[in-house]
């Protein structure tokens, strides 16, 4: 009946396997994803057994699993940070805990792109298999009693049906898939990765990963943003919005010829994009080529749409600069 979890039949009937057996023999409704995982085998491209042993471990100090988990994920990629450094960025003293949004935001401030995974068990395993430790939010309470906890999933053994985590004061915590899902489900299967800008998550969704990079760019690391957009375009070369992002990063770094080059390529793919036209015109104008910029910005203004007001302002500016030249 079951190909996966062959250990079910082995002598090592751990508690986890027992719970799993119950879950699989008709009560799969409580652990739907575990049941699915058992049926479908390990996710595509993921080995049966992975453990990222190099993931550092910061034993948690009282209530501060948020800073500890985030520091674990960041330090894994070489960010020099300890949980103490992150307390002032993610910890809420009166709540004695950390909010999900702040976990995402704090990673950005450390030069990493944070991304919330799709709520799928298979995606969690695929990220681990790709070498990305995953910060997860689980509820260790029962019913109305809530004990929210952040941990870092950094390994699994598919055949034994176990997830391996850095959690609280435990360096290597083993949790059976079914029990893990029981605790994880209550957070809506919330999981995040925080990756250096050159990396793309194994399970990245084009639109959401782009939004993650834009959020990262917002914090102001133009160099990192440039790298992230370039990696994005290596994977999805036709994405015009990512090209706009890459050009904006170049522009912020005063690399105007590079910005122009990227925008020209984008313009050939999306000739009517007001944003591409506006930004290209601005880039040309800033290089003193207002004559080239004018026809482009006229096209942007004529196209209308939500960015028409910005395009009109840019045109005024270009006309002003041209007038100054002829005077």
């Amino acid at each position: 009946m079951l190909q996966g979890f062959s250990a079910l039949r082995s002598a090592r009937l751990t508690a986890g396997v027992f719970v799993l057996a119950a879950a699989l023999s008709g009560c799969a409704g409580l652990f739907p994803q575990t049941a699915q995982l058992a049926e479908e085998g390990p996710p595509q491209g993921a080995p049966r057994e992975v453990e990222l042993t190099q993931v550092p471990f910061f034993p948690q100090v009282e209530y501060q699993c948020g800073p500890a988990a985030l520091a674990t994920a960041l330090a894994n990629f070489g960010v020099k940070v300890t949980p103490d450094d992150l307390v002032s960025q993610v910890y809420l003293p009166e709540r004695k805990g950390s909010l999900q949004v702040e976990m995402l935001a704090a990673a950005r401030r450390r030069g990493m792109v944070s991304y919330v995974l799709a709520p799928r068990f298979a995606d969690l395993l695929r990220e681990i298999a790709a070498g990305n430790p995953v910060v997860v939010l689980i509820d260790q309470g029962i019913g109305p009693l809530e004990y929210w906890h952040y941990a870092v999933a950094m390994g699994y053994d598919y055949d034994y049906g176990q997830l391996i985590l850095r959690s609280g004061e435990t360096e290597r915590r083993l949790i059976p898939f079914a029990l893990y899902e029981f605790m994880w489900k209550k957070s809506g299967y919330w999981a995040m990765v925080a990756l250096p800008p050159q990396r793309v998550p194994a399970t990245a969704d084009e639109t959401r990963w782009l939004a993650a990079i834009a959020a990262f760019e917002r914090v102001g690391d133009a160099r990192g943003a440039r790298t992230a957009y370039a990696s994005f375009l290596a994977r999805w070369p036709d994405n015009v919005n990512a090209a706009i992002g890459l050009a904006n990063a170049h522009y912020a770094l005063k690399e105007l010829p590079q910005a122009e080059q990227v925008l020209r390529r984008a313009a050939s793919r999306a000739p009517d994009s007001v944003i591409v036209l506006n930004n290209l015109a601005q880039t040309l104008s800033d290089q003193g080529r207002d004559e080239d910029a004018l026809p482009l910005i006229e096209r942007a203004v004529a196209a209308g749409g939500p960015f028409a007001a910005a395009a009109r302002e840019t045109r005024e500016q270009i006309l002003g600069r041209l007038a100054k030249k002829t005077r």
Partner: peptide
């Protein structure tokens, strides 16, 4: 909002 905090133990 959930605020992750717990020092394990209840598991």
């Amino acid at each position: 909002m959930p605020a992750g905090a717990d020092t394990a133990g209840l598991l």
